[in-house]
Amino acid sequence: MSDHTKLDSEIIKFIDECREKEHADSYLIAVLHKIQGKYGYLSDVHMHEVAQRLQVPSSTVSGVATFYHFFRLQPKGKYHISLCLGTACFVKGADKILEAFRSELGIELGETTSDKLFSLECSRCLGVCALAPVVTINDQVYSKVSPTQAAELINKARFEEAA
């Protein structure tokens, strides 16, 4: 697969630009953001390449990638479900929505289903507390979600896939 061999030329250009700047190594997080934006997650191969190009130890790159929750080390599912577990969503029953997704998909937070269709993740607060509880699937925001609706969303996606 091509994305496992080499970084995109745009990202390489960005890294080269960063190297020209003062404190070049401080752009590591920015570079990782670009890679995740492009490929959806950070693969080992990509992280090694970043280490070489930015001239920072591989251990630092992997240390940073694993420290920050925003970075994913596994590819996303086709339907990436992000459930807000902020306080407002919690108070309005997000824990019950999580339970519904868990039982429907058979996966835990941070995991991807074996058919690579769904991945489940929690986000801390999307800042749309007035619409709690909030679920986003890919970029679509669903507000005031109920456990039944959660199960329906999954079934709808499955149905669309089967069709």
Partner: peptide
């Protein structure tokens, strides 16, 4: 400079390390 989902980076000394591209 973008954070990457670490609550502790709101603490000022951690925030500075994160700006420097390190673990916060």
């Amino acid at each position: 400079r973008l954070g990457a989902g670490a609550f502790v980076c709101g603490e000022e000394t951690a925030l500075m390390l994160s700006i420097e591209g390190k673990r916060g």
